[in-house]
């Protein structure tokens, strides 16, 4: 019950009750959108990705932030490769600092 799953809002079930239909990995379910409206009407959210917990969309997934986190991950990997390359070249050239 604690594991949230990402899904996409595909249609609106009841505008007044803030209910939408969310597609989670092919399974569609009526989901309460009250917590993710942020002043918008439910119909404006169709197509958005949200995280669903026990029948309630609890947060929108920010695609830009997702991208930035992935970029940061890639950078961490690049830095690591750089360090390893530096060490290898240092070891080969015999200039590596003693560790």
């Amino acid at each position: 019950m604690c594991l949230g799953i990402p899904g996409r809002i595909v249609s609106i079930e009841d505008e007044a009750k803030k209910l939408g239909v969310v597609d989670v990995g092919g399974v569609r379910r009526v989901t309460n959108l009250a917590c993710v409206l942020q002043g918008q009407a439910p119909s404006e959210l169709v197509g958005e990705w949200v995280l669903v917990h026990v029948g309630f969309a609890m947060s929108r997934i920010d695609p830009r932030e997702a991208q930035r986190t992935l970029e940061l991950l890639a950078e961490m990997g690049e830095v690591q490769e750089e360090l390893e390359a530096m060490r290898r070249s240092g070891a080969e050239a015999g200039t590596g600092a003693a560790s």
């Binding site: 992935l70 990997g77 690591q80």
Partner: peptide, 23 residues
């Protein structure tokens, strides 16, 4: 699945583990 698969990339995971070893 969107926003799931991207965060399960094994190659990226290996690099992070290497970084953790250094740290």
């Amino acid at each position: 699945m969107k926003y799931v698969d991207e965060f399960r990339n094994p190659a990226a995971g290996k690099k992070l583990v290497a970084r953790i070893r250094e740290q």
